[in-house]
Amino acid sequence: MQYAKPKTVAEAARLLKDEAGVTRILAGGTDVLVQMKAGMVEPALVVDIKGLPGIREIVAEAGGYRIGACVAGAELGEHAGLKALWPGVVEGAELIGSTQVQGRCTQAGNLCNASPAADSVPALVAAGAVARVIGPDGVRDVAVSDVPVGPGKTSLKKGEFIASIFVPARPDRASDAYLRFIPRTEMDIAVASAAVSLELDGVGMVTAARVALGAVAPTVRLVEAAGAALVGTRLDEAALDALSAACSAACAPIDDKRGTIEFRTHIAGVLAKRAARIAYTRAGGQA
């Protein structure tokens, strides 16, 4: 294995393009190193992108924030502005792993690992976040929801990597929330998860809603019917039941050591309801 720590994006892109064998990007390393240890991947080249300019910064942009690909989970939690604007996005990132993992893990890495259960992804999808991808052919922006295409698979092409993730501006009365279910209180992979992003009008009516579910399908799933169930309501019980039903209907999970199909399908609806209530309260709605 070769290790490289390029100082420019161009150099990084070139290294990745020129390597004929398996390559891996090293940001936080909390997935890549585990996979290497288990022998699941034996890269010929690891490119450590932490030396690239701006890659560890969170920058205000157009009313939203651009989050560098190497910003660790703990650093997101320490950013007051981002936390105020997109609390659900931050809590998703902060739920990845332990305190120790928080010191290293990144949203971009979580996204590129392409696990259906990735904790930081549902809230990014609900937020309509956009990834900035750098590759041999230059720079392109891709919706976060379009990055993972299946368990462990992304739409990134040979030589491409994510340099940053952009979360947009928000109206005043808007917020989001993310919840996952795990058997313990920490240290587990989500058995199912839900992110809800809401915008309210002056009287607490939901004007826009996006709901994304994790660990219930091969990729994180944006459930448009679930969002639609909330629009035009003040989050009354009927709306929440409709949300829950839409979420459960959108589930296509698997049975595995972490949960059954039945359990995941049920829990997704429960979590969506609970997350919606939190997001609603955060947005200033009176439940």
Binding site: P183, R184, T185, E186, M187, D188, I189, K257, R258
Partner: peptide, 10 residues
């Protein structure tokens, strides 16, 4: 990860 012994916060 999946053999779940209790953690402090449990």
């Amino acid at each position: 990860l999946d053999y779940r012994v209790p953690v402090a916060s449990d």
